[in-house]
Design a protein around this nucleic acid. Structure first.
Lengths: 346, 346
DNA sequence: CCGTGAGGTTGGATCGCTCCAACGGCGGGA
DNA sequence: TCCCGCCGTTGGAGCGATCCAACCTCACGG
C-alpha cells in the first residue's frame, strides 16, 4: 500500500493560512488561540475574524506534539454492558470538558481480546490522565500505564491496586450491604441469605459487609451464603439451592441486580411468592431494578456522583502527580421497591 | 550539543534514542518499525533489540503529524445505555484492529451536552473514518464531519441521511416486523396490535412493516396502533389503553424490548396472563428479552454481525472515499421465547 | 578496468503547532 | 535630547515521527 509520489495537500487551513489572511505572524495567531493577555484588541479581532472566515480548526496532533500534553484523558471501561458506566460518564464528562480536557473511551473487555492494543494506544497517544472504571484486570499494560501517568480508579476494582500514586474512588460496598441487612432486619427478617459475586473485589466486599452486618445484628449464626458469579444464571442456580433448603431463608441479598433478577426467576419457578414468602434485594440500582416488571429493592451506588468526583480527583492529580494516592469511599443509598416486604409470620 | 532554554525532557525514548543505541540512523529505525522489506536482517535485528531494551513506543501524535493520517477511527454512539452497542462494538473492534486501526469511542449524548466538543475533536484529531451508531441527531458538527471524512452509519438512523458518500448499514426493520406478524398469525392470532416508537426512524419503519404485514395477511382491518416512545413507561401506558378496549387484542407487537417490558408490566397489573391471554413480542433481543424473568420473544438485529460489516464497509470506504454511498440492510432473525403462545380460544 | 544497477543506508526537509529570545516603537523620566 | 522599559509582535528552533532523494557499497557484465 505504498503510495509513491507527492504528499497530498489536505487543503485544511493551518496557522500559516490564518496568519496570512489576518496579516499577522503565526506566533500571534497562536497567542490569540491560547488567549494570551498580551495581544492588542485590534490584532485579536483580526485573527478571530480570519479564523471564522477560514473555518480554521487547530490540528490536534501538531498541538499535542508541540505542547507535550494532549489535553485528553483516557477512560478504560471494563465492559460497556455494565449500565452504571453510562451514569458515571454522565458525571465525568462535564467535569473533564469543563477543564478543557477531552475524553477517549476504551472498552477493556474488547481490548483484552485485542492484545491490549487500546491500552497501549492510550499511552502512545499521550493521554494526560487515565480513569480506570470498574474491575479492570490488572494486565501488565494497565499497571505500566498507571505507574507512568496520573490515574484514578473508580468503581469496583482498585482497593487492592496498591500503586503508589493512584487514587481510588469507590462505592462503600460494605456499607451498602449493611444498609440491606438493616432494612431486612427492620422488616422482621432473621434468616437472611446472601448470593455472592465472588470473583470481583466488589463482590468480596459486599459479602464481607453482609457477614459483618449479620453479626452486628446478632444473626451471626444465620449467615448463609451461596456463591453466584454476578450473572443472572448464577443468581438463579444459587437461589434454587437456597430455596430448596428445609429452613429456607425469608430474605435474600444478591450481590448485584443481575443476580437478583436470577433470584426472582428462581423464586417464581419454584412457586415462592415475592415478597410475601421471600424478600429479594439487589445492588447497583441498575435499569433492571427500575423496570416495573421486576421492581427490585437495590443499593444505589450513586454512579453519577462518582463520575463527578473521579473527574475532580483526576484533575487534581494531574496538577500534582506525585501526591500520595488516596482512597475515597462514597456512601450508598438504599432504594426500596417492591421486592422486599415484611417477614412472613412463622 | 548545547540546547539553549532546555525544555523538559520527558525521558521517553524517541527514534533518535533507539537509533543511537542500535548504532544506525533514525531513518533505518523508522523503516524497521514500518517493516519495510529493504532492510538487512542484521540491522533489523539490532534495531528490534534496541527497541525492546529501551521499551520504545512510537509517539502517536508525531506519527499522525508526519503521516497525515491517524490510523484511528471515531465511533460516535448516541447513548451508551443502549445495550446493542456493546454487541456491535464486539463485532466492530476486531475488524478495525485487524486492519491496524484504533478506535476512539464517543458518546453523542454526552457530547450534545458538551456543545459537540467531542465531535469536533474527532475532526481535529484527524480520524481516518467515522462510525455513527444509532440515531445520532444530525447536528451541524456531525453533518460537517460526515461530509469531509469517510463515514458509515450503522443502526437506527441514517436511512434518511442523504449524504453523498456515506454508507448506511441497518437492520431490516420492516422485515423484522413482518417476522413478528407472521409468527403471531401462525399461532392463530388475528387481533394483533402494535405499540409504536415513533420519534425514531427505526420506530417508523417497524410500524410500517407491521402495517404492511397485516395487510399482506389479510388483516388490514385489524391494524391497531397505540403510540409509545421506545421507553418502558410509554409501553406500559399504551398497553393499558390497548387491554382496556372491549375488543382487546390477543397479541401485541412492541417497537422495542423496553416497550415490551412495559407491556408485560401492564398486562400483569391488569391481571391479563401472558402468553395465555395475550402474547407479547419485542424488538432488539436485548439483555432484557433474555432475562429468564421476562423471557420475551424478540427480533434479533444481529448487532455483532452489523459491527463486523460496518467495519468492513468503513475500511473499503477509506480506500475509496468517493465511491457512491450504499445502503445495506441486514436480515433479522426472530428469537421465540415465552411471551408468545397460541391465540386463546374465542 | 570501468560503468551500472540493485540493495542498504542516510541526512534533511517536512508536518502544524508552541514557546522563547529578540526586536521595534512609543512614552516618560533624567 | 537621550535612554530605558514596556507592550506587542515576530522569527526561528524545536516536538518526534515519515519520506524522499542522494549516497555508498559491491557484484557483475561488457
Amino acid at each position: 500500500m505504498a503510495t509513491p509520489g507527492a504528499r497530498r495537500d489536505t487543503g485544511r487551513p493551518t496557522l500559516e493560512t490564518v496568519a496570512a489572511q489576518a496579516g499577522v505572524s503565526r506566533s500571534l495567531v497562536s497567542l490569540v488561540l491560547n488567549n494570551s493577555p498580551k495581544v492588542s484588541p485590534a490584532s485579536r479581532e483580526a485573527v478571530l475574524r480570519a479564523v471564522a472566515d477560514l473555518g480554521y480548526r487547530p490540528n490536534a496532533a501538531a498541538r499535542r506534539l508541540a505542547e507535550r500534553r494532549s489535553r485528553t484523558v483516557g477512560v478504560l471501561l471494563n465492559d460497556l454492558r455494565q449500565p452504571w458506566f453510562a451514569d458515571m460518564l454522565d458525571g465525568l464528562g462535564p467535569v473533564l470538558y469543563g477543564a478543557g480536557k477531552h475524553m477517549l473511551l476504551g472498552d477493556g473487555h474488547i481490548d483484552q481480546l485485542m492484545d491490549e492494543t487500546l491500552t497501549w494506544s492510550f499511552l502512545d497517544f499521550g493521554v494526560d490522565g487515565l480513569v480506570l472504571a470498574g474491575s479492570i484486570p490488572l494486565s501488565a499494560a494497565v499497571v505500566s500505564i498507571a505507574r507512568s501517568i496520573p490515574t484514578v480508579a473508580v468503581g469496583g476494582r482498585g482497593l487492592d491496586l496498591d500503586l503508589p500514586h493512584v487514587d481510588v474512588l469507590a462505592n462503600d460496598n460494605e456499607r451498602g450491604a449493611t444498609l440491606v441487612v438493616e432494612h431486612l432486619t427492620g422488616l422482621g427478617h432473621t434468616r437472611i441469605a446472601h448470593v455472592s459475586g465472588l470473583p470481583s473485589v466488589a463482590g468480596r466486599l459486599r459479602m464481607q459487609g453482609y457477614q459483618d452486618a449479620m453479626r452486628a445484628a446478632g444473626l451471626g449464626a444465620d449467615v448463609l451464603i451461596e456463591h453466584g458469579d454476578m450473572s443472572e444464571e448464577g443468581g438463579y442456580r444459587a437461589t434454587v439451592r437456597l430455596l430448596s433448603r428445609p429452613d429456607r431463608p425469608t430474605a435474600i441479598f444478591a450481590a448485584n441486580d443481575l443476580t437478583c433478577v436470577g433470584a426472582l426467576s428462581a423464586a417464581t419457578a419454584l412457586g415462592v411468592r415475592v415478597p410475601d414468602e421471600v424478600s429479594l434485594a439487589g445492588f447497583d440500582n441498575s435499569l433492571f431494578a427500575r423496570l416495573r416488571a421486576l421492581w427490585l429493592t437495590s443499593v444505589d451506588g450513586t454512579a453519577h456522583l462518582m463520575g463527578r468526583q473521579a473527574g475532580q480527583m483526576l484533575l487534581e492529580r494531574i496538577e500534582r502527580p506525585s501526591a500520595p494516592g488516596q482512597i475515597r469511599l462514597l456512601p450508598p443509598r438504599l432504594e426500596v421497591r417492591g421486592s422486599t416486604g415484611p417477614a412472613p409470620a412463622r
